[in-house]
Nucleic acid binder design. Sequence first.
DNA 1: TGTTTGACGGACA
DNA 2: CTGTCCGCCAAAC
Length: 102
Amino acid sequence: MVADSIEKSREQIWQVVNAIPAGKVATYGQVANLAGMPQQSRLVGRVLSRLPSGSKLPWHRVINSQGKISNPNPERQKLRLEDEGVVMVSGRVNLRIFRWQP
DNA sequence: TGTTTGACGGACA
DNA sequence: CTGTCCGCCAAAC
């Protein structure tokens, strides 16, 4: 069934995001690759946008390839990242320094 | 059933 | 740096 593969993709994405360590970040495209679905960065964004309330997933550690925050509520995400030591300079994270490298 | 949207990404001007 | 264009595709319209 098609719905099952979608469900599977979602769980794989959750798993990858859950593996991002505190103080590091990953891009949507990076998560998609690690989840075994290249070119599906939008799917990653969609999945994160529909996380169940109360989810313990570190969704705030996922940013776009420009090092910027895509979340509709940037302030919240920025604070969470800074609490973990991720520094933002003029609205951007230096991926050279903070990108998670499995 | 056809079209638009969106927490993206990369190429290009 | 800004802006356009295209690939991607599940959901919402």
